[in-house]
Amino acid sequence: NIDGPKVFWKLSMWGNPRALSDGMEKLSELAAKETDGNFQIKIFYGGQLAQARENLDGLTVNAFEGAAICNFYHPGRNPAWMVFSLPFLPLGDPKVDRYVRSKLFEHPAIVADMERWNAIPYVSGLLPQYEVLGKGKAPNDLSDWEGLRVRAGGGLGSAMEKLGAVKQTLPAGETAIAFQRGALDAAAFPYTYAHVAFKIHEEADWFTSNLAPGTSECGWVFNKTAYEALPPQYQEFLMNNRDLVMQVEQEAYAAQDQKNLPLFEESLTKVTYSDEQLAEFRERAGKPVWDEWINANKDKFDAQGLFDAVWQYAEEAKAAQ
């Protein structure tokens, strides 16, 4: 349906095919179909083209045309993107999350981060909210978090520290073993698929079900030079299908949840916090981290403005529902 020249796009991604890549695979399929095979998009998995942390370098030197990136792998490279890693943002509802992040991907500060690397934000990976799985006594009260050894990174790690927990860093793949041997009490991961991917649920005794303490941004960015070199009809095709990509991603997460949740409910103790508890959580472990972040970044970009935009977009999304 779309006429155009032969174009071959290479997208760099680490790890195996998963929900994050399902959306782009769908896009690739559609591109081939719509352009009669002229516009080829191929995802190279397993870090074949670059390591996760070097994907932005690859775009800068024009080695490939697109890549997945995770903001927290290299905070210094994308300071504004670290807003996505702040704890207790109002993004627990997947619909709200999708709206807010699509808007943020066009926010000047977020765009500017990528501009430095010759990249443009394309579509969010919509990583689900984290929840915590743990071993031993379930933390039904806020005070129970005191002294727990928790694997949590970024803003979430800082939030846990405010509650008196001890932050542990270890590679995701070693988490289950650390659990098993009692070197760790709790671990936060995107809920539910990542817990299952790393077999954490097999070792845990309890899980938090509604903490929604925050998440991160692992999404897709394009090579700016390559994008600008595309014929307008291909550019249009890409931009018009962002919703499709996000929809496929969220369906993939939801399908995982449908499989995993019964498993969790069956074998683990479910921890559900009341609204008052959640409010207190936010007050004690959220606000201080936000303020610190805004303060630390206010000279680099309009940190306050970006942070406020998150809340403003969230309000818009809720109002539209």
Binding site: A50, Q51, E54, G58, V61, N62, A63
Partner: peptide, 18 residues
Amino acid sequence: LLGWSGAAGIVGTVPHSK
């Protein structure tokens, strides 16, 4: 595959990153 600048650029990242 990539031309000089892409190739040399990506090669320059490998020793440190790996």
